[in-house]
Design a protein around this nucleic acid. Structure first.
Length: 572
RNA sequence: GGGCCUGUAGCUCAAUUGGUUAGAGCAGAGCGCUCAUAACGCUUUGGUUGCGGGUUCAAGUCCUGCCGGGCCUACCA
C-alpha cells in the first residue's frame, strides 16, 4: 500500500468557476484520488480556495460586502459546488486560514534567515480615489505607441507592446476611472530565486517523466533572457497574510501583506494542517504527509493544474520549499492540462460565455459532466466543448453502452428467473473468451490510470463496457433459455456479476451511478478485481437484487438546443 | 517580437518515440438480434497525415521554409 498526496490547483475566490477550471485540475485530481483509494492506497487529497489579492477585494466591493464576509460566503458556495460534482477532497481549505497565516510567515522567516529575501524600494502607482496601490493591469490609458485609448499598464492589447504604467498617456484607474494618481515610493520583499536557478534547473532536469507541457514552461522561465528573475512576494494591500518574519514583526513592512502567489501554494500544506485540526488529530498526523523527517519520505506527491499555473508550481513554490532549508516534501509529479474551449471560443467569465459550474449541476447530474469532461480532457492540446458532442458522447457511452447493459440484464433476469441471482448451469468457451478479454482490458485500464492518462483510461473503460454487450450478443441467453434454462441461468449469473464489476471499475469516473448500481445489487463489496474470475463470482446464486431505475436518461435534441441558446451569451 | 504547443477520416482523438497495409469512437451505409433506455452485435464507406523541399533502406514521427490554430511572456490569479 502506497501513500499518495494529491493536490489540485486552488480555485480563486472571486466568483463561480466555469467547466474549464473543473476539467483542468479538480476533476482529474479527483479521478486519480478515487482510483488510488479504490486500489487500497492511503490517499490525502487536498484543495482550497485561493482568497487573497486585488481581484478578491474588488469582487467583494462590487458585492458591497466586507472582503472577509465575501470570501467566507464564496468559499461555502464553492464547497457546495465541489460537493455537487462529488469532488472527494479530504479537506477543502482556505488560504486565509490561521494555519496558512502562520506557515506563510514561518517560511518567509526561514527564507530571510537563509539570506534569500531582499528588500527592494520601488515606485508604484497609488490611486487616491480608490485608496489603494494599483497593479499595472488596473491602470488604463492611451498607448504611447499606437494611440489605443484602453491600453493597460502592463501591455497594450491593441499593439501588444509591453508597457510600464508610467508610459501611459493620461493614465486612469481601471477601477474607478479616477485620474488622481500618484507615483509613490514603496518598499517590498523579493524572493531571490535567481540564486537558486542552478538548483531548480537540475531538479527540473531530473524529472524526465514529466509532461512536456510542464517542463518546457519551467525551462523557458529558467533560461529565457537573463534567466530566472527574483520575484516580489509582498503587496500593499489590506487583505492577505500580514508580512512577518515568523512570529516577529518585519520592520519597514508594516501594513503590507504577502503576495497571493506566495501564500497560495503554501496553503496546500496549511490545508492539511486544517484537516488535522478539523478532525482532532495531532500535528504528527499532517506532518507525516509533508515533512520527510517525520514520515513523508515514502509519500508520492502529485499535483494537478492548468498550464497557466505551471511556473509557480515548478519554480516559485519549490524555491520557497528548498530555500527554507527545512525538509518539506517536494512534488514528485506534475500533471498539467491545456484549456477547454466553449463552442469555438474561450469560456469567458466576464462575458458570461459558456457553462458555469453551478448552472451545469442545475441542468444535469454530476456523472454526465464528469464522464464527458474527463473523456475529453485537454491533455495534448486545447479541447472543445460543443453541445452536439456532449449530447452524443453522454447518450451513447452512458445511456446506451453502460446504462442499457445494466437494464437489459436485470430486466431479463427478473422476467425469467425473478429478482435474485439464478443458480445452476456451467460456463463455456464464450465465457472464457470474455474473461480473457476483460483481464487484458482491465490491466490496460489500470496502466492508464496509474499513468494519469485520462482520455485513454476513459476509452478503455468504455471498451470494457462494450465487451459486456458483445458477450450478451454471442451468448444470447434469451434464445438459450428456450431450450436450456440452466445454461441461460449461468450466463445471467455471470452478467449480473459483470454489472457489479462495472460499478467498481467505473467509480472514479461516475461515482453516483456506481453507488446506485451497488445499491440495486444489494452488495457493499466494491473490492478491486485483482482476479477477474473471483470478481465475477462475488454475487452467489440466490443473492437478491432489484432492477434499478434508468441509470442515465438521454439528452433530447430539444434540451440540447435550449441549452446551446441559454449559454451562448450573457449570464443571467 | 521571442518561446512553447498544435494541425491525422465529416466530428472527437490514437499511432509502442524512425519500422509491415495510419487505427478507434461518433456520425453515414448494409445486415443480424429482439433481453434492453428505437437500445445491442456484425460488416462496411471514408485519409496524398495543413502545404513545399530535404535526410533515410524506411518519415504521421527527424531537419528546413511557408500557412493556420492556441498558450505563455514574470504586478490578474
Amino acid at each position: 500500500m502506497a501513500r499518495i498526496l494529491i493536490t489540485s490547483a486552488i480555485p480563486y475566490i472571486n466568483g463561480i468557476k466555469h467547466l474549464g477550471n473543473l476539467v483542468g485540475s479538480q476533476l482529474p485530481a479527483d479521478l486519480y484520488a478515487r482510483y488510488m483509494r479504490d486500489r487500497g492506497n492511503e490517499v490525502m487529497f487536498i484543495c482550497a480556495t485561493d482568497e487573497h489579492g486585488t481581484p478578491a477585494e474588488l469582487a467583494a466591493a462590487k458585492a458591497d460586502k466586507p472582503v472577509e464576509e465575501f470570501c467566507a460566503e464564496m468559499h461555502q458556495t464553492q464547497a457546495r459546488i465541489a460537493e455537487g460534482f462529488r469532488l472527494s477532497f479530504d479537506h477543502f481549505g482556505r488560504s486565509s486560514s490561521p494555519q496558512n497565516h502562520a506557515l506563510t510567515q514561518h517560511l518567509a522567516g526561514k527564507l530571510a534567515e537563509a539570506g534569500l529575501i531582499e528588500e527592494v524600494s520601488e515606485r508604484q502607482v497609488y490611486s487616491h480615489a480608490d485608496g489603494r496601490f494599483l497593479p499595472d493591469r488596473y491602470i488604463e490609458g492611451t498607448c504611447p505607441n499606437c494611440g489605443y485609448d484602453k491600453a493597460r499598464g502592463d501591455q497594450c492589447e491593441n499593439c501588444t507592446k509591453q508597457l510600464d504604467p508610467t508610459d501611459l498617456i493620461e493614465p486612469r484607474s481601471a477601477i474607478s476611472g479616477s485620474t488622481d494618481l500618484e507615483v509613490r515610493e514603496t518598499k517590498h520583499l523579493y524572493l531571490r530565486q535567481s540564486t537558486m536557478k542552478d538548483q531548480l534547473d537540475s531538479w527540473i532536469n531530473s524529472k524526465t517523466d514529466w509532461p512536456v507541457l510542464t517542463t518546457s514552461i519551467a525551462k523557458k522561465w529558467l533560461h529565457d533572457g537573463d534567466g530566472l528573475q527574483d520575484r516580489g512576494i509582498t503587496r500593499d494591500l489590506n487583505w492577505g497574510v500580514p508580512v512577518k518574519k515568523g512570529n516577529e514583526d518585519w520592520p519597514g513592512m508594516e501594513g503590507k501583506v504577502f503576495y497571493v502567489w506566495f501564500d497560495a501554494p503554501i496553503e496546500y500544506i496549511a490545508a492539511t494542517h486544517e484537516w488535522a485540526d478539523a478532525h482532532n488529530k495531532d500535528d504528527a498526523d499532517w506532518l507525516r504527509w509533508w515533512r520527510t523527517d517525520k514520515g513523508a519520505d515514502d509519500v508520492r506527491y502529485v499535483q494537478f493544474m492548468g498550464k497557466d499555473n505551471v511556473p509557480f508550481h515548478t519554480l516559485s513554490f519549490p524555491a520557497t520549499i528548498m530555500g527554507s532549508g527545512e525538509p518539506w516534501k517536494l512534488v514528485d509529479y506534475i500533471k498539467s492540462f491545456n484549456y477547454l474551449n466553449y463552442d469555438g471560443g474561450q469560456f469567458s467569465t466576464s462575458q458570461g460565455r459558456g457553462v458555469f459550474q453551478d448552472q451545469a449541476l442545475e441542468i444535469l447530474p454530476a456523472d454526465y459532466w464528469r464522464w464527458w469532461l474527463l473523456s475529453h480532457a485537454p491533455e495534448s492540446s486545447d479541447s472543445e466543448f460543443t453541445w452536439e458532442n456532449f449530447q452524443a458522447g453522454v447518450n451513447k457511452d452512458l445511456a446506451d453502452v453502460l446504462g442499457n447493459f445494466v437494464s437489459r440484464v436485470t430486466k431479463f433476469c427478473r422476467s425469467k428467473f425473478g429478482e435474485e441471482v439464478p443458480e445452476g448451469g456451467t460456463l463455456g468457451d464464450t465465457e472464457q473468451t470474455l474473461i480473457s478479454e476483460l483481464t487484458k482490458r482491465i490491466r490496460a485500464y489500470e496502466d492508464h490510470m496509474d499513468a494519469m492518462e485520462v482520455r485513454k483510461s476513459a476509452a478503455e473503460l468504455r471498451a470494457i463496457w462494450v465487451a459486456g454487450n458483445e458477450y450478451l450478443q454471442s451468448a444470447a441467453p434469451w434464445s438459450v433459455f428456450k431450450t436450456d434454462p440452466e445454461t441461460a441461468a449461468a450466463q445471467i449469473r455471470l452478467s449480473l456479476n459483470l454489472i457489479r464489476l462495472y460499478a467498481v471499475l467505473s467509480e472514479p469516473f461516475i461515482p453516483d451511478a456506481s453507488a446506485r448500481i451497488l445499491e440495486a445489487l444489494q452488495t457493499e463489496d466494491d473490492s478491486w478485481p485483482d482476479d477477474i474470475v473471483t470478481a465475477l463470482s462475488v454475487l452467489p446464486a440466490g443473492h437478491a437484487f432489484t432492477v434499478p431505475d434508468v441509470l442515465f436518461s438521454k439528452i433530447t435534441d430539444e434540451q440540447r438546443e435550449g441549452w446551446a441558446e441559454q449559454f451562448s451569451g450573457t449570464r443571467e
